[in-house]
Amino acid sequence: MNFPLILFILLVITGCIWLLDSLLWKKKRSAAENEPWWIEYPKSFFPIILIVFTLRSFVMEPFKIPSGSMIPTLLIGDFILVNKYTYGIRLPVINKKIIDINEPKRGDVLVFRYPEDPSVDYIKRVVGLPGDTITYHNKRLIINGETIQTDYEGDYKYVEAGFGYIYADRFSEYLAEESHSILVNQDVKGIQFSNVRQFEFRENCKYRRTGFTCEVPPGSYFTLGDNRDSSSDSRYWGFVPEQNIVGKAFMIWWNFGDFSRIGLAIK
């Protein structure tokens, strides 16, 4: 369901009724005559829909985390807020950028439209910028020839549907000025070759038994999930085009199962 499009259609309908009533219909009614329900209700809802549409399109948008691909940063059931303007102002519905502000940086937690199905929103971490060479070799991330520093934090256990408990190693990874946590499952191969698809600029990637190397094309980004061995990400379906970007995740605003997560900053 394309909720932004539905919201836009409701905004247009209620706005047109409000405008037509203000300019035409209201003048034709007597002072004692009540507004018809088909005018009263749209006029009442119009300012509410306008506020929601404006906030959701240009300021921030809520999302729910449906999978464990970003564990331990984001847990299944987290409700997050996404900054819609940090990377620029975009026209709603068509998602076309009209004003540049900032560009995504390595380490940003990015919400974007899934390249294989733009009606679906994905959330991953940016590890590669346009022009970068990204190598993943024996589960170590290498950017432009420099191996990214990781520090072991300890063991991590979580529940994955259909598998029960999953045991992994937790590391601090340093992509930018601040570190973030990632999970590595030593019992799983670093790349599942059966999941690699044919995607745009597939020729920019070379896969081998121990991993892969990809050159990020202009206007695109390379993303990985923090739960490295349980994530469908750029390793498998390719690069994120700039026009698919929705915004930057910055805060957890709710979690029904763990109130202590409310208000946590996403880093």
Rank of each mutant, 00 (worst) to 15 (best):
P130H: 05
W37D: 07
E178A: 07
I99T: 08
D226P: 04
R235S: 12
L264H: 06
P217N: 04
G263N: 00
S194K: 12
R113C: 01
N204I: 11
R235N: 09
R140F: 13
G219D: 02
P218I: 07
W38F: 13
R228Q: 08
H180C: 15
S172A: 15
E203F: 13
G131T: 09
V109A: 05
Y165K: 08
E40R: 15
S57Q: 02
R113F: 02
T223I: 10
K105A: 14
D21R: 06
P104E: 08
V127H: 03
P4H: 00
L7N: 06
E146G: 10
V59K: 13
D108F: 08
S181I: 11
F163P: 05
N2E: 07
I48L: 13
A31W: 09
S57G: 10
Y156N: 11
Y136T: 11
F259I: 11
H137V: 06
W237C: 01
F63Q: 00
D155G: 11
M251Q: 05
N204Y: 13
A249T: 03
Y158F: 13
A168V: 09
S57W: 00
V12R: 02
I143W: 03
K84W: 02
V127P: 03
I245D: 01
H137R: 15
D226T: 03
E173Q: 14
K96G: 01
M1Q: 12
G15A: 05
Q192T: 12
P92G: 06
R209H: 14
C205M: 12
T133G: 11
K206P: 08
I101A: 14
K157S: 09
P42Y: 09
